[in-house]
Simulated scan of single mutants.
Amino acid sequence: MDFSLTEDQRALRAGMRELMERRYPRAELRAVVDAVAAEGDGADGADGAVDRSVWRELGVAGFFALRLPEAAGGVGLGLPEAVLAFEEAGRALLPGPLAITQLAAGLSAVGLPVAGAAEGEAVVTGLDAADEVRASGGSGGVLVEHLASADVVLVLGDEDAEVRPAKEIMSTAEAIRSVDPATPLHRVRGRARGGSDGGARSSPGRGIAARLRREAALLTAAQQLGSAARTVEMAVAHAREREQFGRAIGTFQAVQHLCASMLVRAETARSVVYAAAVTEDPGDIAAATLLADEAAVRNARDCLQVHGGMGFTWEADVHLHLKRAWVRAEQWQTAAAAEEELATGLVSTGARCL
């Protein structure tokens, strides 16, 4: 099977990178981070709000409607193209519930219309109610990103999905400190699904939760891939510029080995993420999640090593990639869940071979 990008796909990726650099440059990222820092690291959960103007511009560019049919006002592309777009968003560390908003834009086909999602007029975040139950019998709660900025929440149960007003979910939410200053988090306990006391709610979407989880996991892995690739670029650029003992540190073998290992991780993850976008196989998506999470986290750590003490300072961007990678690694499909998915697939394959 050929996973090489077509000319149109390369053009899409280049266009998305240009959009991110123009609309969400480093200065914009730093402004968000510095604003959160000034308010005490976002401890109240109210900082790091989604920039509605950026959200709307993404909608105008077709980011959220990328997979909608042209007849429905979308771009008419598929999951591989969505992965390319999300890779660029991860590279830029664009904050917000991007994956869930894009998934919500396509829910009209299953009877769960979310007005404004495709156009970027609505911010949609997600809540995995089944994960809440599995984690601690429903008493420990589940983390939801950007809840204070969201208009609606896509709630996924064991099999079904429903759309709930964000204000309704906020009534059971507790703001918590997030390790990533640009990703505010709330913990939601109990009544995460069904049995609400008020607020309009759409009819549940039957049997679509598993597909939505898989796609959310893959789009999140694509963002991890973008971050992993970006930290490779940052490490190499610093190694070329930084000098010690009259030589660029990139000439030292230890630094070269770090950069080479980072590149191998990023490119290995890229091949698996791209393949999973084509096959949409649960096992392939699990493998993509594992490798992309590892690449994002370990590459950020190695990039810190290349930068030395400077990488740990607030002024550097390296630690922002590490913190975002930590948060994403806990979203939609954790390493443990991905390993279970792969193990189940292997057992099933072995049983068929007997």
Rank of each mutant, 00 (worst) to 15 (best):
Y274L: 13
A182D: 13
R211E: 13
G15N: 12
T289H: 00
S202A: 15
T279V: 11
L304S: 06
V153C: 07
E168S: 13
I208R: 02
P282A: 11
A61E: 06
D44I: 05
A118S: 06
T251E: 15
R187W: 08
E315F: 06
S196K: 02
L143G: 11
G126E: 08
M310T: 08
T344K: 14
L66C: 04
L342V: 10
G246E: 03
L212S: 12
E330I: 00
A200S: 15
D158Q: 12
I285G: 03
E88S: 01
R26T: 04
V54Y: 08
E267F: 05
E57F: 04
A277I: 04
S53C: 11
A292N: 14
G283M: 08
V33G: 04
A336Q: 09
A166T: 14
A260Y: 08
E339F: 05
G190D: 10
L98C: 07
L107A: 11
G140S: 11
G76I: 01
A235P: 12
Q9K: 07
A49H: 02
P204S: 07
E132F: 00
E81F: 01
T125Q: 02
E294C: 05
E315L: 03
T183W: 08
A109D: 11
R17V: 10
S4P: 05
T289A: 05
T289L: 00
A38S: 03
T6K: 10
R10V: 06
T344R: 15
V124I: 09
A38Y: 03
D293F: 07
R23Y: 07
R301Q: 03
S196T: 09
R134C: 08
V255G: 04
L98S: 06
R22H: 09
H146K: 04
A115S: 15
E18C: 00
E18G: 01
A150D: 12
M20D: 08
R26D: 04
E87P: 12
V179M: 06
A31K: 15
H257M: 00
